[in-house]
Write a protein that binds this DNA or RNA. Structure first.
Lengths: 348, 348
DNA sequence: CGCGCCCGAGTGACCGGTCACATAGCCGCA
DNA sequence: TGCGGCTATGTGACCGGTCACTCGGGCGCG
């Protein structure tokens, strides 16, 4: 009968089995499953019935081998446990699944940068489409090393002017605007200036958040304190902030993300400073716990899932120009909570 | 020359090109790339040189089509932004990459349970190996619906006695012990009893954390308050706890995870209760921000990455009995911080 | 010295799709 | 009525590996 049970017990049914069942040629079956138009309705229905009856499922490997593009992509990211990366991944997966693409994940080491060979090995086949979540240095580095023949889209902190990164499609959130929002909010509360505790920069360029912060400072004619470099985690925020919060002239701190802000708030408490009366703290991302911290964190909500969906959309269009244009992401939104408050001057 | 550049510009080099270059047959090349023993050293070296020279990379699709098992697996999980699931995924990916398996991710909707057909569609090919992160109902549901012929390993909250879930290999952390640890700690501080704010249960059975909590309560002869059902997020913890913390006889609350605990702590503050003097709160997981909350959260650290590695190891052995046994996970470890404190009775 | 065996290597079919091309039937139109 | 062209379908090769065989030659052994 041609459909002998294989080792796992499941009978493997091929298009030729379906063809025999429907009384047509295997090619006609191929046309039906690919939605080709030149098939008579009656024939199409017969084939579809046979497919249902036999429980036929096309074999991806065979299809790919025969030259059809595989509907799959690989996401290269450096740390899936960080909120931004995890949410972006979710967005990619969601959009990809809707377009019936399979999503593979490959996690980059935060410290050991892979070389070209390793990167190629992670990609399974040459030409495998890739989305790089390049918020940090390992991601940007990987983006740089990706072979020229791979279709690549990057989620970046900001569009880079430096080659060859800029030659590939990119998506980003308006971090500059987000930072400016938050900074203006703090200045509007009466703070003389705002200190900025930055995330590790992904490139040599000035980060967009830093830029937005400077934009707002300059627009207000406020002093520009030096940027403090931190990390991604609460711990690094805590460590970096201990010095900062000991300085009573620092009255408002903008943090690279909400996790860092949590660390900063702790350092502030330990230094005997009271938030927000005595010190204002704001973050970025609006992680789920932000609203429940003590005090609840003022932050800028960033649409990472939308960013992920956009990345997939861009990649899809790269592979198939007929694919629909991706929906735009939400604009960054300042969420004012309890961790920022008015400043009435040192004398108060 | 047989290696005409394809559309993307990359010349496709096959096993036969390598064979020609090395002056051997294509089968010998196949033997070399599969590490087959019956190849003379001189021949092997010649072939390897040809592979390097030509930059040959085996074609996965062809290999799979020809009957070789694909080194890939799919992770089915319901929410990659939750710490436990994200960390488990990381562990799986890490171990899988070390064994050169590709990892695909498919995210289950928290509310809409997929049917068999949808699940099959997510799996690309019949027989695709799967790891299900089944900490919650959608995961357990998916586990139940997976076709019998797919190799499946599940990361579960606890081993289930109910068929057919139990017939598949499973890995779990010792949640019962973890809960007992935390409960004993609280009872040891002088609390008359401990209230438990549970996660949504994944099955009809009594959850292991609930069980461990009851174990400790019973061993101490403490009263057994009813379990309060909550969710996974800070918000659900906050909402569920508002009633609980209004009751002054509640002096210690164990929360299903750290996120929930953060919500509970907020509800407690709003109710005018002071942690830990007035109310003790503990969680599970030890998320990165736990140590930086106000107050720093007492919690039980769980080795989710180890769990993920174990899951992969189990799956690997399922596919290839010669694969090495996975390393054991770390035991749950109680991390005492500031959110739990002694209770001296209502009179104090 | 002759036989059989094993090692190293080669040959051709096959996996399950797709593609390019061939072909039969039907229509309209000159 | 004959012919071109279109539509619906069939035929066979091919993608790049692997598998089951075949085959030749060197060696040990009786």
């Amino acid at each position: 009968m041609g459909t002998a049970p294989d080792a796992s017990g499941a009978p493997t049914v091929t298009i030729r089995d379906v063809a025999r069942e429907a009384g047509v040629s295997h090619q006609t079956v191929s046309r039906v499953i690919n939605g080709h138009s030149a098939v008579a309705d009656a024939t199409r229905h017969r084939v579809e019935a046979a497919i249902d009856l036999l429980g036929f499922r096309p074999n991806h490997a065979a299809r790919e081998l025969a030259g059809k593009a595989a509907r799959s992509l690989t996401v290269l990211t450096s740390d899936t446990s960080l909120y931004g990366a995890a949410s972006t991944l979710r967005g990619i997966e969601e959009a990809a699944r809707a377009a019936s693409f399979a999503v593979a994940v490959s996690v980059l080491d935060r410290h050991a940068h892979p070389d070209r060979a390793e990167l190629r090995a992670r990609l399974a086949r040459p030409g495998e489409p890739v989305v790089v979540i390049a918020f940090d240095a390992p991601g940007v580095h990987a983006l740089r090393l990706l072979p020229a023949d791979t279709p690549v889209v990057a989620a970046v902190e900001h569009p880079s002017g430096s080659e060859p990164v800029s030659s590939r499609p990119q998506a980003w959130l308006d971090d500059r605007l987000a930072a400016a929002h938050a900074t203006r909010h703090l200045l509007g509360l009466g703070h003389r200036t705002v200190h900025y505790l930055a995330l590790p920069s992904s490139t040599a360029d000035v980060a967009q958040r830093t830029q937005g912060w400077l934009d707002a400072l300059r627009a207000a004619g406020a002093p520009e304190p030096p940027v403090v470099e931190g990390g991604w985690t609460p711990r690094t925020g805590y460590l970096a902030a201990r010095e900062l919060v000991a300085d009573r002239s620092v009255t408002a701190v903008l943090c690279g993300n909400d996790d860092v802000a949590a660390g900063v708030m702790r350092a502030a408490r330990e230094a005997g400073r009271h938030i927000p009366d005595d010190l204002s703290v704001a973050g970025f991302d609006d992680v789920p716990v932000a609203a429940f911290l003590a005090p609840a964190l003022t932050t800028v909500r960033l649409d990472f899932e939308g960013l992920g969906r956009t990345c997939f959309g861009l990649l899809h269009r790269l592979l198939d120009p007929a694919a629909p244009a991706p929906d735009p992401c939400d604009e960054p939104a300042l969420i004012v909570r309890e961790s920022t408050g008015p400043w009435h001057g040192a004398g108060e």
